[in-house]
């Protein structure tokens, strides 16, 4: 039986209002800036797609985008396998389960700028525990304020430290939901540890891993605070990720038009890659 009733709109209205104020209206402001030129005094000149063209052709944008993809690729390729490995190694029952879970959750509870500051101090070559140890005890030349490679290693190390736990916790949730009977059946089938992982654990973790990868992609692609506090985008421009570059254009140079256009391009890329990934990962289930 179908009921014709408009009541549902009333229930949706509050959410719509909320979304309008915290997402749609600010977003439209950005759209507004992206097609106009302003010199302050609320004076606007129509520019059409000029800013978009300028950004898309800009070497500086390409470089930042390249760095951004490299960063995201690196942290995904490290955090996902590492997270799965840690989750597999964690105990499934007993006294150590809550201990492990709390230890895993700790890094995620620390505010992002604190993580940046912590790693900055940790890695400084003259006073930092890590920096001093590498330089003066092991004799390795390591200075993230001067050497781009060192800066990259530090920035990736920091993200791995901060966010691998998320993958661990999600993968662990997938693992504990596997009934013992499957492991027993696999043993009886004569399956090796690798087969158990490949054919039982991995498929069971697939859904949570999809979410984990999606979250890590979006978060790392939009990352700002931690690298900004840690390296400030340097040395030079070597760790200037998209968001850092965006803030430089918007607030440093006060080029609001190009910054707005870049924001929209940035948003479109994040959205597209997330959609592409999600579609590919869930394709099998739909068939």
């Amino acid at each position: 039986m179908k009921t014709e009733n408009q009541k549902a709109w009333f229930f949706v209205a509050p959410v719509l209002l909320l979304v309008a104020f915290n997402a749609i209206i600010p977003m439209m402001t950005v759209v507004n800036y992206s097609v106009q030129e302003t010199f302050g005094d609320n004076l606007f000149f129509w520019e059409g797609l000029t800013w978009f063209e300028q950004i898309l052709r800009s070497e500086r944008f390409h470089a930042a985008l390249g760095r951004q993809f490299f960063f995201t690729f690196m942290i995904l390729i490290i955090e996902v396998p590492l997270g799965i490995a840690i989750a597999l190694a964690m105990p499934r029952q007993g006294f150590w389960v809550p201990v492990c879970l709390v230890l895993m959750a700790l890094p995620m509870l620390i505010p992002w700028n604190v993580v940046g500051a912590m790693w900055n101090i940790f890695a400084l070559p003259d006073i930092g525990l890590l920096g001093y140890f590498l330089n003066h005890v092991l004799g390795i030349n390591y200075d993230m304020t001067q050497d781009p490679v060192a800066a990259w290693i530090t920035i990736i190390g920091m993200d791995v430290w901060h966010w691998t736990s998320l993958v661990v916790l999600l993968a662990y949730a997938g693992l504990v939901s596997i009934p013992d009977a499957y492991y027993q059946a696999a043993k009886i089938d004569g399956a090796s540890n690798w087969s158990v992982f490949r054919y039982i654990q991995l498929p069971k973790m697939k859904n949570v891993l999809t979410i984990a990868i999606l979250l890590r992609f979006m978060d790392s692609f939009n990352i700002y605070t931690e690298p900004f506090v840690l390296t400030g985008g340097g040395p030079g421009n070597s760790t200037t990720l998209l968001s850092i570059d965006l803030v430089k254009i918007a607030l440093g140079q006060f080029d609001l038009g190009p910054a707005a256009a870049m924001s929209l391009i940035y948003f479109a890329i994040t959205l597209f890659v997330s959609w592409l990934f999600y579609t590919l990962m869930t394709k099998d289930d739909l068939n």
């Binding site: 009977a181 027993q184 059946a185 043993k187 009886i188 004569g190 399956a191 090796s192």
Partner: peptide
């Protein structure tokens, strides 16, 4: 178990 060549139905 893997090497015992057995089957089990639950």
């Amino acid at each position: 178990t893997q090497k015992r060549k057995i089957s089990l139905v639950h």
